[in-house]
């Protein structure tokens, strides 16, 4: 039994219309996604805007209603009734994309970080304060600043407050939904390196949702590529970056910027080539609705959505 297993997850949002407001269709935000994460590893979920990667993460933690499918965390089914899974949910926490709106502006840092502690652990006021100070120290913030309000911190510091809140209950799995995309590049590196540090320290497992392949390459062990709610390719970091099989992945990998100006010509040539291939074979890789096919194994770790005819 894996650590986190997602089987054929579907999240559909109804489209209502007509008289009587009946359901006339559905947006298939996530349409049959399966993957599993091993303990202590970082799993990257990559895709363009609207590909359903955030919805997948939110469905796992219970913020989006799951239409069908199964989410198994340490052998327990998270899709069953909420009351039964309450103590399991403590082990899954989330880091949000926007550090500005994910902290309540009317609350002090103490109240923000202590919120999960107040829900699950019965601590006295003094214990709670010490614990919050300890957490702030752990994320590299001044423990003296517990009485400040969130707007008194910079973006990077606020994201650290968000991380302190997420690790307060000593969770096992953290879903990081584009944790650095709202931060500027210099701060991104700080936060990412820090996330790796606490991963080692607390033996955390990350589900890392991002659209930035450079960051994913830096952070993740295994990677899944999503397109229009479906997986197009899944594999280890080496599989994806060194041996991309699906035309969509190839195009993504080719789009990673290269700093070395000497490679510029080469890079441009490669991109043109991939672009040609993409236009030429688009219909071969996607069905007539423009969606990806089922995943098929091409090696033990590497799965690609290729058509039946191969």
């Amino acid at each position: 039994m894996g650590f986190l297993e997602v089987n054929d997850l579907k999240v559909h949002f109804p489209i209502r219309g007509g008289i009587l407001n009946r359901k006339i269709g559905a947006i298939r935000a996530v349409d049959g996604v399966s993957f599993s994460i091993e303990e202590g590893k970082t799993y990257g979920l990559v895709g363009e805007s609207g590909s359903g990667k955030t919805t997948t993460g939110r469905a796992i933690i219970g913020l989006n209603h799951i239409t069908s499918g199964q989410v198994m965390f340490e052998g327990k089914d998270l899709t069953s009734k909420k009351s039964k899974t309450q103590h399991v949910r403590k082990d899954i926490q989330m880091i949000f994309q926007d550090p500005y709106s994910s902290l309540n502006a009317k609350k002090r840092v103490l109240d923000i970080v202590a919120e999960p502690l107040r829900n699950y652990e019965k601590l006295t006021k003094i214990e709670e304060k010490l614990r919050v100070q300890e957490l702030l120290e752990q994320v590299g913030l001044n423990p003296e600043s517990i009485l400040k309000y969130p707007h008194e911190f910079s973006g990077g510091q606020r994201q650290r407050i968000g991380i302190a809140r997420a690790i307060a209950l000593k969770p096992k799995l953290i879903i990081a939904d584009e944790p650095v995309s709202a931060l500027d590049v210099s701060v991104q590196a700080q936060v990412l390196n820090f996330m790796q540090e606490i991963q080692k320290e607390l033996n955390l497992t990350y589900l890392f949702i991002s659209h930035d392949l450079g960051i994913v390459k830096h952070m993740c062990d295994d990677i899944g590529i999503m397109y229009k709610g479906r997986y197009v390719e899944e594999g280890t970091k080496q599989d994806i970056f060194n041996n991309p099989q699906h035309i969509y992945t190839k195009r993504l990998v080719a789009a990673i910027p290269d700093i070395d100006p000497q490679n510029r010509q080469k890079q441009k040539h490669l991109r043109d080539e991939v672009q040609m291939e993409y236009q030429q074979y688009y219909n071969d890789y996607f069905d007539n609705e423009g969606l990806a096919y089922r995943l098929r194994n091409i090696s033990d770790s590497h799965l690609v959505a290729l058509p039946e005819k191969g």
Binding site: I61, G62, L63, Q86, R89, K90, I92, Q93, M94, F96, Q97, D98, S101, S102, L103, N104, A105, K106, K107, E115, P116, N119, Y120, G162, R165
Partner: peptide
């Protein structure tokens, strides 16, 4: 908004989110 959603993932009950998180705003 994210802060209300975040409270949910932290295990805060709906009632508490309404009156201690949303109301002050």
């Amino acid at each position: 908004l994210d802060y209300a959603q975040a409270s949910k993932t932290l295990g805060t009950s709906n009632f508490k989110i309404m009156f201690t998180q949303v109301l002050p705003n």
